[in-house]
Structures are given as C-alpha cells and as structure tokens.
Design a protein around this nucleic acid. Sequence first.
DNA 1: GCAACAACGGCAAGCGGTTGCCAGAAGTTG
DNA 2: CAACTTCTGGCAACCGCTTGCCGTTGTTGC
Lengths: 336, 336
Amino acid sequence: MARDERKRPTIYDVAREAELAPSTVSRALSNPGRVSSRTREHVLAVADRLGYQVNSLASALPSGRTHTVALFVSDITNPHFFGIIRGAEHQARAAGCTLILGDTEESPEVEARNIERLGSSVDGFVVAASRMTDEDIEALAGKHRVALISRQLAGLPSVIVDHVDGTREIVEHLAALGHESLVYLAGPRRAWLTDQRWRGLAQAARRVGMSARRLGPFQPTMRAGANAADVALGSGATAAVAHNDLMAIGMLRRVAERGMRVPDDLSVVGFDDIFGSDISSPALTTLGGPFEEVGRLAVDSLLGMREKSREAGRAEQIVLPSHLVIRGSTGKAPVR
Amino acid sequence: MARDERKRPTIYDVAREAELAPSTVSRALSNPGRVSSRTREHVLAVADRLGYQVNSLASALPSGRTHTVALFVSDITNPHFFGIIRGAEHQARAAGCTLILGDTEESPEVEARNIERLGSSVDGFVVAASRMTDEDIEALAGKHRVALISRQLAGLPSVIVDHVDGTREIVEHLAALGHESLVYLAGPRRAWLTDQRWRGLAQAARRVGMSARRLGPFQPTMRAGANAADVALGSGATAAVAHNDLMAIGMLRRVAERGMRVPDDLSVVGFDDIFGSDISSPALTTLGGPFEEVGRLAVDSLLGMREKSREAGRAEQIVLPSHLVIRGSTGKAPVR
DNA sequence: GCAACAACGGCAAGCGGTTGCCAGAAGTTG
DNA sequence: CAACTTCTGGCAACCGCTTGCCGTTGTTGC
C-alpha cells in the first residue's frame, strides 16, 4: 500500500521544487560540469530532500547506456565460476555498472535465448565457457559487445587461463612420478576448452614419451565423474586427467567406492582448483588459475570496447598464467 | 562496426512495413487478444522477417513492468545459495522474467545500496539471508515488492527452512550418541538465523537435559571455522554445532590439523548440506533442506504479490521441512 | 431495415530521462 | 565601449513502447 501510493519523485518534481527547468536538473545530476556549482548544489540539496533517485530505465532509453553488463556462465552450480563472478562483480561495480548473472545450464539454446532476451538492456555480455558455435558467437558479436572467458575467437576480446603451459606442467608432473600413460576424460564437445586441453595434454605427452588417450565426452559434473572413473579404470592407464574438478571429485568417490585407491591405483588430476578440491580425500591435484582476475579483466575489456572500435583496437586476447596445485590425488605410478 | 550501423528495428519499422499503426503492432505483440488473428499473424510475420526484438527497456518505462526480479544473496561464494539461485532462476524463467543476481558480501550497506540502485528497474526483490535490520527491511518493503528467504518479518512473504524441528533433530541425534554438552558456534549477529538456530538448539537441549552454550559470533566462512574449532575444543563440549557447513568444514580441517579426531574427540554438525559437505573427511553431518524449492517459492510469492495487495492477502510465510543428513562427523561421545 | 453493440485499428499523450540548439548573462579583449 | 567569447539555463524533440479513448466497420437483434 505504502509502496503504491507514494510515487518516486522525478526530475520534474525536483525541478519544480528547485524552480529550475528539468533539463537543468538532469544536467546537474549527470553532467555536473555543465551547470554552475551554485545551481548544482541547490539541485543536489533539493533532490536529496525529496529523496530523488534516478530511474535508470528512463535514463537508459534515450542515452542508450544502461550501465549494466551481463555475465553468463555455463553452470552456476560449478564453484569454478565463483571467482569469475566475484571478480566480474567487483570490476563492474568499480565501473559504476550493475552485473546481471545468467546461468545457461550447459545449453547453447538457453544461452542464445537468454542473451537475446537481455539484448537492449545491457551494455554488453561477458560469456564464460560458452557452448555456442563460433558462428553463433560471431553473429552475437555483430549485434552486441561481447567479451569471452575460457574461449578464444579472432576479433573478440577474451580472457583465458593458460592451458598450454598448464597441461605441460601436469604431464611433466605425472611423468616425474613415473607414469607412462594417461587418459583425458573429455568435457562437453561444445566446450572450447575440451579440445584445447586435450591438444595440450597430447602434445606434452608426446614430448615426454607418455601415451595419452582421450575418452568421453562427459558432462562436467560430479555425477558424470563416476562414469568417467569407470572408463578410466578400464583403460589401464595409471593417470587420469579430468576435464574439471567437479568430474575429478566425482571420480575420486567412484574409485573409492570400487575399493581401489587414489593415488596408489590411479592418479587423478583436475582443472580449476575449485572450492572443495582441497577438502576431498585425497585432496585433488589440479590446475588452478587467477579466476577472480579473469572475471575482472573480462569486464574490463568489455567496457573498454566502448571507445576503441572493434577493428581499430584489435580486441585483446588475454592469457593468464595457470599454476599446478599438487595435492594427494597424484602419486607414484603403480609398479606393474 | 556491424554492431553500430545496423540499428535494431523498432515497432515503427514493423508498422511501416506491415502498413499498420505502431499501436497495432504493439498490441499484436504484447496483447494478442486485442487484434484480429489475421492482423496478428501478419505483424508476427513482418516482425520476424525484420528480426524485430522488443526493447525491454522501452516497454518497461511506460508500463512499469520490467519482467525482472532481483535476487540478493549474502555471499555468492557460499554453495548454500546454489540451490536457491537455481530454483529462483527456474521460477523466474517460468514466469517470463529475468533474474538479476546480486552479491551483498555480508554487508548491510552493500545490500541497501545495491537494492536502491536497482530500484526502478526490477519488479521486486528476493533477499536471501539479509543482514539488514528489521527497520531497514520494512522501509525497503514500503517502496518495493520484497520477499525474504531465511528470514521472517511480519507482513512480508518469506520462505525459510524449518529450524525448530531441525535443531531438535540435531540435538536428539547428539543425545542418542551420548553427548551431554554442545556448543553452538554462532554466525553473524545480523543474520536472523543465528538467533533462531541458537534458540532452537538451546530449547531442545534443555528438553533432553543436555548443556548448551553459544560461542561466537563468527563469520560464516571456512576460514572462521578454524577459529571456531579452537574455541569449541577449548570449551570442553563433546559436540559442536556450527552455524553453517562452510564453518563446519573449516572446523573439520582445523581439528585434524591439531591432531585430534572427528568424531572421536569432537562431533561436528553443520547447516545447509552444501556441495562439499559430503566430500570432506569425515563427511559432514548437517541439516539440509529443499533449497531449490525455497528459491522457487520465494520468486513465486514475490510475483504473486502483484495482484493481492499486501494488506489483503496477508503475506504468506512459508516454512519448508528440513532433514538431518547423518554422516561421519558425528559419533559416540568420548567417554571421560 | 435500423438501432445497439462488439471488434478492431489508429491517434496521441504519456513513461522519465537526455541532449542539440538557442538566447541572455557574464566575462574578455582591443 | 563595442564586439566577441564563454557560461548557463531553458525549450523541445526525441528514445521505443504502452494504453486510454475514439471512430469505423461488421454483426446481431427485433
């Protein structure tokens, strides 16, 4: 009731009260240099007294600037995105923007639809771990400002955590432990990272003379990890690299369930170093990265696109270093 | 470039192309019953051909309906909110709304500020685990539609997971294991749940003749769990109930770090049954709840407020049942 | 066959801001 | 002191869509 009667004051109310034109009030509020300081202060005082708050919808309409950015993640229940979300939020807030978070639930359709839905009400999109095709992303980028996370595409700004060096580190770590064979439990086919990680692993394995096989694809979830574990155990490899920590943790459980031991019977490595990867038993060896920074930089480069035209500035593709976190899930290769 | 040249078509473009008035196009799109089916189909076809997409900003301005709801959580890195977020999103989507997610980072100021910022651009707010004072929430509710999660306040719709029965269950479980004393490691003072949980525990303990003490407050994080563990161990109690799973998991680690064992030396119970609570070792005994349902219902009752006036309908306060998940972190009380 | 009434499409006034343009006031310059 | 900038504030035209109201046309009832 109270809610409905009292309408929010508008600049017209403030203008009337301050005995000025609405346009002057508007300027005093959003373009302070344009009016005299006396006027500005007067307006501010009146606005304050009336409890005036800009209607962000109304101001976005003529100006086209919504001061809102959207972040889409492929699965909001994956702790991997925590850091990214936090980082993005901080950067957005620092830039005076609101962050809208969307969960695409691993579906390229949901992704495309949600993005289209938001269309005109945001200044741009940060898409993390997109499942869309390159073509769809390009089409999207033709209509909106887009920055990518965990994916690279020519001409678009992106932020990824290095996987070339990271996978090399993983392989060398395993090699040092005496492993001679590894399997990669692949993530979704649509995930750009799936191929990248496999390529990195395969190449590094070749270099150290380790055999490597790719199995899957699997959904990047704990549940699918059980399946992946069975497949990995069946493969005869002594080391398994899961597409992400969620899968890896699911594998740890399944291996234990089957009465085998990690790392004695099988070494397991994950990606992301998520919350939970250090409380599992054994704790998970995993490739971590500065994900908060990833989120921050992605928003940053999205907002940065404002000025530089896409052609001129050459969208920057940022690669942040990863680091291998060695914990209990990797150990000496079992002797045959 | 492509992005900037081609402006999105508007209803005027569609109207011109369809040789109709803009108002008719508007109606065909958003109020189909108001035009003849022939006209509607014609408009739809033209709109489709032109790739028309409503500008949600523009339509929200005159109508006042933004088809957007905001969900604020106190800490987005707490997996507890996963289910709530998912549930809220699903329900929002089902109702044709977009969900905006906000992280208030445990701060009532951030909470109030962010809510005010969004003010006019959402249809309402779902606030989970609010840290604001009752007065501030009431003030907010005077200006916007608000639904609460994990908090009750007269006159406002809310969804909580039962704690009365839940805490009783916890206490009885501990009593059955022979425990005669428990400590509650309290959460933030501003969290409504902190007092509620303590009250429930204290009352249940009294009834079974168990001693209960409240310690803290602590931040509801893993980090603070270490501190809580030390305090709990120092208290001499044989059972510790942490404010949430994050704290409880932090406690598990700290206890192990100090060379003691859970549950042999100390039984530990948490709240929420978050992701991670079953992969810790020992796995955590915790009070779970249907959190996805919580999120869903909260959005539901928020959107339901549309029709029924707040006074008339008597805001519904929903209480969902909790369930105790017994795992390895609770065991027989140590014999003295 | 005509009044009464739907049904349907169009007009135009908003929603609450932003902003290009103009004009009067104030400040500079020679 | 005239001529010319620079400041400031106001006017009014949007931004793209919604919606109350009106007029036309087609239907129905008697």
